[in-house]
Amino acid sequence: MTGIVKWFNADKGFGFITPDDGSKDVFVHFSAIQNDGYKSLDEGQKVSFTIESGAKGPAAGNVTSL
């Protein structure tokens, strides 16, 4: 699925993605970002991701920028 990064705190390594389908915002951890180098996201960035079952509920996985 796709969405827009609502916010991401690079110091803490997590944030939230707002899915394009209008569903509830999804937690994203830096370890789910699939790019080389520094793993961070920018507010407003368009991303593709999967929904994984995290310890505290749904979380984004396999996050790639579009």
Rank of each mutant, 00 (worst) to 15 (best):
I51R: 09
I51K: 08
I17E: 00
N9M: 06
D11M: 14
V5S: 01
I17L: 07
V26W: 03
V47A: 02
T2V: 09
K6T: 06
K12S: 07
K56M: 11
A60S: 03
S48R: 13
N9C: 12
Q45E: 12
N35S: 14
A60M: 02
A32K: 09
G15M: 02
L66Y: 08
A55T: 12
D21T: 07
K12T: 06
G15D: 00
K6C: 10
N35A: 14
G61V: 15
K24C: 12
H29S: 05
E43A: 15
H29Y: 06
A10L: 10
G22C: 09
T64K: 14
A10C: 14
N62C: 10
T64N: 11
I4K: 12
Q45D: 12
S53C: 14
A55M: 12
G13T: 02
S48K: 12
G15T: 01
T18K: 14
F16E: 03
S65K: 15
S65A: 13
V28R: 00
G3Q: 00
D20S: 10
D20F: 09
N9T: 05
Q34V: 14
T64F: 10
F16A: 03
G54I: 05
N62M: 12
T2N: 06
K12H: 09
N35P: 07
T50R: 09
E52I: 14
G37I: 09
P19M: 06
I33V: 09
K56F: 14
G13R: 05
F8N: 00
M1K: 11
F14G: 01
S23Y: 06
I33G: 03
V47K: 00
Q45P: 01
Q45V: 09
G61K: 15
S40V: 13
N9E: 04
V63D: 01
A10G: 10
K46S: 09
T64M: 13
Y38F: 14
V47S: 01
D11W: 15
K6W: 04
T18A: 11
D25A: 07
T64D: 05
I4C: 13
D25M: 07
T18C: 15
F27P: 03
T64E: 10
Q45H: 07
D42Y: 15
G15R: 00
V5H: 01
G37R: 09
G3M: 01
F8D: 00
Q34E: 09
F49Y: 10
V26L: 12
F8A: 02
V26H: 02
S31H: 07
A59V: 14
K39D: 05
E52T: 13
A60N: 01
A59F: 15
G44T: 03
A55P: 14
G22W: 06
I33C: 04
L66A: 08
G13D: 01
F27W: 08
S31P: 03
K56E: 07
W7M: 05
I33F: 07
K46F: 10
T2D: 03
Q45N: 07
D42V: 15
I51T: 06
Q45R: 06
V26C: 06
W7H: 04
L41K: 01
K12V: 08
F8T: 02
K46N: 07
V28S: 01
A10K: 15
V5D: 00
V28W: 03
F49Q: 00
F30Y: 14
I51G: 03
G54M: 10
T2A: 05
E43H: 14
I17D: 00
L41G: 01
Q45L: 07
G54Q: 13
N62L: 10
Q45I: 08
I33A: 03
I33R: 02
K12R: 13
S48T: 11
E52S: 11
D25F: 04
G57A: 06
A59H: 14
T18Y: 07
K56C: 12
S48H: 12
L66P: 06
S65Q: 12
D11S: 15
F49S: 00
E43L: 13
A60I: 03
S23H: 07
F8V: 04
D42L: 15
D42K: 15
A32M: 06
W7Y: 08
S65L: 15
G3P: 00
